[in-house]
Write a protein that binds this DNA or RNA. Structure first.
Lengths: 99, 99
DNA sequence: TCTAAATATCGGTATATTTAGATATGTGAA
DNA sequence: TTCACATATCTAAATATACCGATATTTAGA
């Protein structure tokens, strides 16, 4: 966990928002069609709709967040669901306490 | 205090380090010539020496950090001393707890 | 008031980031 | 196996950031 790398991800309003939305998906996204829970997070399309940015941009953002280990992807058929990686977030918050 | 703005400052290794060095100046910098304490922080020249970057770059970084209210400048004669703004840092850490 | 030291600002180049459209890849269903 | 849909990746343009050297500003002292 490199705090500077994590900070780069958080240094963008959209990515920052995505992380917050994923904290309480049921408050920010409609229910999925094929599954009735958010245990694996939210599909890319819903995140894209909420941001208003292009599909490729959101997919790129989610890849960056995955590289920084801030989110975890899970495939369900045609869809990829992204959820938060609470372990990394915990480490980051912990590290920043000493800043 | 805008957490995305703060994150942009922290998204650079040098700026991140400067903030940490300023937490314990006596451990990271030599004593100043004209004053015998670090109550107002550290002069620009010492910070520049420690980073190895150019004078203009460091001055610009410190301005950015000041704009984000992460540091507070104080003039002492020819020198400008920079110290941390603990209030902003506290607010940022607090906000991140809810991330 | 002239000079020199410390810092700030300006202008420029190289690199990185943001963002989109086009295209590729993976997957379920017909 | 082919089609349509969801997502990922590639390419590229616009903008932002990382730096530097040169110059401007501020200030103490001669």
């Amino acid at each position: 966990m490199d705090p500077v790398e994590i900070s780069k991800v958080l240094a963008n309003e959209t990515r920052f928002n995505i992380l917050q939305w994923l904290k309480n998906p049921e408050e920010h996204f409609p229910p999925h069609q094929d599954i009735d829970h958010f245990d694996d997070g939210v599909c890319v399309g819903y995140i894209q709709d909420k941001t208003g940015l292009s599909q490729s941009t959101i997919s790129t953002y989610l890849s960056q967040m995955q590289n920084a280990r801030l989110v975890i992807p899970t495939r369900h058929g045609k869809w990829t669901y992204y959820r938060r990686n609470e372990e990394t977030l915990k480490q980051y918050k912990e590290a920043l306490q000493y800043l």
